[in-house]
């Protein structure tokens, strides 16, 4: 495996007039991992991906794909190593699914696609190759895009909201496909709103907020960042004042004899309080990536961009 990062961003900024879509992003994606790229609409995920694909240029900073500038016409061949599924996939309405895939395969070159592997993908996703693209549902169009991205066995897969519109069975099939890619030592850049999907697949996660990276780490680290929720039901009046008095406790809510709170630090002071009262039941669910994600956004209000554009 090459020591050169598959993707490298150094101080990458992208501005659209007064809007800063991506702000001084430093990022390295090593080979062989599934890289989760998270953030709400307008955070800058799609803009970053489009710069990686050479479809947009950074306003400042430098970006390299397999060590070269992806936007330079001299480096068009580097895209032979990449499979891309855009968030907004638009197909040629005059073609059938099969013709669209053939067209993409020929643009990659005559020997770039293993027809057996492509047909296996088509079977797995249940795609009808003879159906005109214009008659396909959103989910089936997505399947065409997925087969198109995977079929050349690229070293890097760049997938922007890949399961949008897919039914749960196909979502499971997609997870298996990504697992196989990882097992083969290839790299996946996965941008998704489906946090469970990222949690299940990603080796490393970066979270963007308003164009800036707010978190970069492995999924367990992100889970550890999530505040621990705790729900306790008392036989009698709950010790609300005592819990609220603890520095590590936030968001205390009371529903009859049940108290729910979030714990930001060590748990033992909370347990000490609970031990002094008659607790009937305690629930402390496993920390989820979704909680960490929401916590990150709760701290600074809406991260949406001013014009609401999907950047």
């Amino acid at each position: 495996m090459s020591a050169v990062p598959v993707v490298s961003c150094v101080g990458v900024t992208k501005r659209f007039e007064s809007l800063t879509a991506v702000d001084r992003l430093d990022l390295d994606i090593p080979a062989g991992i599934v890289f989760g790229y998270l953030g709400p609409n307008g955070a800058g995920k799609t803009t970053t991906i489009r710069m990686i694909m050479g479809l947009a240029r950074p306003t400042s900073g430098s970006l390299a794909l397999f060590g070269v500038d992806p936007a330079s016409p001299r480096n068009a061949d580097v895209r032979m190593r990449v499979g891309y599924l855009p968030g907004e996939l638009r197909l040629d309405e005059k073609l059938t699914s099969g013709e669209q895939l053939e067209h993409w395969a020929r643009l990659r070159g005559p020997t770039s696609v293993d027809a057996t592997y492509r047909d296996a993908l088509v079977d797995r996703l249940g795609l009808a190759l003879d159906r005109p693209v214009r008659t396909l549902s959103t989910g089936n169009r997505r399947k065409v895009g997925l087969v198109g991205a995977f079929m050349s066995r690229p070293e890097l897969l760049v997938l922007d909201e890949p399961t949008s519109g897919l039914d749960p069975l196909m979502q499971q099939e997609f997870l298996s496909m990504v697992d196989e890619v990882r097992a083969e030592g290839r790299t996946v850049l996965l941008s998704s709103h489906v946090l469970s999907e990222v949690e299940r697949l990603a080796d490393r996660v970066v979270v963007l907020r308003a164009g800036q990276m707010v978190l970069d780490g492995a999924v367990p680290e992100l889970q550890r960042q999530a505040l621990q929720k705790l729900t306790a039901t008392f036989n009698g009046a709950p010790p609300v004042a005592e819990l609220e008095g603890l520095a590590a406790v936030t968001d205390v809510t009371v529903d009859g004899a049940t108290v729910t709170c979030r714990i930001t630090g060590p748990v033992h002071p909370v347990l000490d309080v609970l031990a002094r009262h008659r607790v009937e039941a305690i629930t402390a669910p496993q920390r989820e990536i979704e909680d960490a994600f929401l916590d990150l956004y709760d701290t600074s209000g809406s991260p949406e961009q001013p014009n609401g554009a999907d950047t």
Partner: peptide, 17 residues
């Protein structure tokens, strides 16, 4: 404008070509 260049130009072709 229809968005059809998004995939086409992500393949190993140059824009001008």
């Amino acid at each position: 404008d229809a968005g059809r260049l998004e995939v086409e130009l992500s393949l190993p072709v140059t824009r001008a070509g």
